[in-house]
Design a protein around this nucleic acid. Sequence first.
DNA 1: GTCTATAACGGGATAGAC
DNA 2: GTCTATCCCGTTATAGAC
Lengths: 223, 223
Amino acid sequence: MAGTDTKERILDTAERLFAAHGFAGTSLRAVTKDAGVNLAAVHYHFGTKEDLLRAVLSRIVIPVNRERLQMLEQVEAAAGSAPPSLEGILEAFIAPDLRLIRDLGERGVIITRFLGRSYTEPAEMVQALSREHYEELGQRFMEAFARALPEVPQAEVYWRFKLVVGVLTYILADTGPTMGGYAEDLSDVDGTLRRLVAFLAAGLRAPVPAPQWQDRAGEGRSP
Amino acid sequence: MAGTDTKERILDTAERLFAAHGFAGTSLRAVTKDAGVNLAAVHYHFGTKEDLLRAVLSRIVIPVNRERLQMLEQVEAAAGSAPPSLEGILEAFIAPDLRLIRDLGERGVIITRFLGRSYTEPAEMVQALSREHYEELGQRFMEAFARALPEVPQAEVYWRFKLVVGVLTYILADTGPTMGGYAEDLSDVDGTLRRLVAFLAAGLRAPVPAPQWQDRAGEGRSP
DNA sequence: GTCTATAACGGGATAGAC
DNA sequence: GTCTATCCCGTTATAGAC
């Protein structure tokens, strides 16, 4: 197949096993055994186990996030000085992840699972790595969402963006038929994308519920 | 504090460490050391490490799911033969989780994090346990959602229900300020609940996008 | 019920030959 | 670059004294 040299085989195998069993649940011995390489090779090429994870994650995330930003810039450029398209921003955020599946076949499924898992992986270091890769990106997208949703308070937009991340994470990490046995075909990128965007755009645009037991006198809002 | 006998201290400590580091990332030695009990005690009281996890998970999930079903039955009874309230179903699904935080204080935060992690924990056994607890519950709720959303195709309702689970999972598992440093106060149960319901209800009710490149002759839909 | 001691094994990491 | 051999520690689990 492809990638027959040692370093690449280690990356591919680690990617697959991290996706399947998590970081703590994957031993270097399992990786080297599956990859058919020597245990010492992983230390020679990458250093520590943590360094290996860093390499695996970077190889995936960096190009995906670059594509996200490119798509976002196109959406913003198309809007000019007007508020950018909410649906466009959502597509820019979601599509690059989904496309991995279609473009990379079986490995795409593995990778998306790995990505979804990375968000919620308990290991502190994995989380630190995730933050490292997503912090500025999140800021950029949150600002775009805020511009696209002028009628929603900014704090609420930021909070709802987290819900968007949650949905995407869960969809990616999902191993198949979870509740009720209804399986999802993620390889239908266009269909999944349109249905996700429809759901999320409606949620993002929803009227913000007013605080219920908070009676601020002097604010002339009549329900 | 509370729970000074050995068995309970083990449960409390395991719950906290599983939530923080995951199942694979938590050793029994760490549990017994933190709990101030002997390593052999955990085997005496629970058996294997997997049995301990089962005990920790059951202690939390069983009463929460019971409350979910009770709330769902009330919502359905209130609706009579009419479609049940979508917002009511969402509250029945979400509120019991959120209430844990308010009612149990610091331990509530730990528990919800543990619950959120359980959904995406890589270990096959954890997933099997989760399925075991949520399979019938998911079926019941999916049917309720389908009745509340007669204008949405059933397959789409089922798929969107998974997105609801994803949002809840992510909110629960979230360790704090993730993207952009915007922290959420989950202890405000009523506020969080109303804002979650507003977002999710809008998403669930969103018009279903029609397949784009699918030209079914004989269907009189003019765009 | 609770402890010590230990079995039996797997973990990450490294030195040094080739 | 790749291998063997090994260090050293942590892991789950159990046996048996108290």
